[in-house]
């Protein structure tokens, strides 16, 4: 299988012309990116409405809307360039990992002083980026310490303003794609992309970044070291979403990877199969918040999932990158 993929990589530059690079970019934009940001904007609007309807932290409608919108974000979270990067919008939706506990600290400050900045979503866009987005809202909805602070009416206002802010940010990203960026990327000739190859490189980077983030951060942070596992560093553990986020991100990355590998049916197949192994590991894990990292058996299974993602990363780096013509030099890839 590996050898076949490698041989194909060598002949792919010829195959790639069958489905041109421009077509690949168009497919990725129209089938992968825009639908995801549209779904996110719609879910953001529903979250805002649900919070207006009932802002109680344990309100079922609110929690369901938050979970749906968070799902939509995770499925797009590898696509951090363009409209998502403008004005730090991606960070405004997702400030994680929060290594210094800035999110709870900032929320405690806002609540204890009943800061009037929560009066409107426009004002709220100026608070610390750590107090915005899905992870800050998770604390409001699922953290008992935060829920014991200050006064209920203010906490309600905060939940509503954070939801409205998420609705604004997700709508702005979707608008950015519809009002120019999709065109810019699909007909790259100047602007942010000098040519189709640069647009393709951006998509390839999104795939490699997404894989790296899921393996090294979503799994790596709770794993810590053998002597010092860190289950409480798992992503969104309070709401029980840690494993769910890994699965959703792998599904989204699988979609993008297979789409980019499409000109070579065998490579696309091999890549899809390797993703499926990782997804199978994740589904078999039965450990929604990676609590098992603290015991040897549970840890081994999380590490095994991480290794399966590592196999995906190898195919992406060794086969897909060269096939797309985006693999670059020893130093260019270094990042130091």
């Amino acid at each position: 299988m590996r050898l076949a993929a490698l041989c194909l990589a060598l002949i792919l530059p010829a195959a790639a012309t069958a489905q041109s690079a421009a077509e690949l970019v168009q497919n990725a934009v129209s089938q992968h990116i825009v639908p995801r940001y549209d779904a996110l904007a719609a879910a953001g609007a529903r979250l805002k409405a649900a919070a207006e309807d009932d802002c109680a932290a344990d309100a079922q409608g609110l929690r369901a809307a938050w979970n749906d919108a968070f799902d939509a974000w995770i499925s797009a979270s590898h696509l951090r360039f363009g409209p998502a990067e403008t004005g730090d919008r991606a960070f405004a939706l997702a400030f994680w990992p929060d290594t210094r506990d800035i999110t709870p600290r900032t929320l405690r400050g806002l609540i204890s002083s009943a800061d009037p900045v929560a009066g409107s979503a426009e004002d709220y866009a100026d608070v610390s980026i750590a107090a915005r987005g899905f992870y800050a809202l998770e604390l409001m909805l699922y953290d008992p310490d935060i829920q014991a602070l200050g006064d209920a009416a203010y906490r309600c206002q905060l939940v509503q303003v954070m939801s409205a802010d998420i609705a604004n940010v997700t709508a702005a990203i979707a608008s950015g794609w519809h009002d120019g960026y999709a065109e810019t990327m699909m007909h790259a000739d100047g602007g942010p992309y000098r040519g189709t190859d640069e647009a393709l490189q951006e998509l390839f980077k999104a795939l490699t970044y997404g894989l790296e983030f899921t393996a090294d951060t979503r799994l790596g942070r709770p794993l810590g070291t053998f002597d010092a596992p860190r289950p409480k560093r798992a992503e969104a553990w309070r709401s029980g979403r840690s494993l769910r986020n890994v699965v959703l991100s792998l599904e989204a990355l699988r979609d993008l990877g297979v789409l980019l590998a499409a000109p070579d049916a065998q490579m696309a197949d091999a890549l899809g199969t390797t993703f499926d192994v990782a997804l199978g590991d994740a589904e078999a894990l039965d450990d929604p918040v990676f609590a098992g990292v603290a015991d040897p058996v549970g840890r081994l299974r999380v590490e095994s999932l991480q290794q399966s993602i590592g196999h995906v990363r190898e195919i992406v780096r060794d086969d897909l990158g060269p096939a797309l013509g985006v693999a670059s030099g020893f130093n260019a890839m270094d990042g130091d």
């Binding site: 290594t99 983030f213 951060t217 560093r233």
Partner: peptide
Amino acid sequence: HPASGRTKL
């Protein structure tokens, strides 16, 4: 942080 590879935090 080495626990999250080269991810910028």
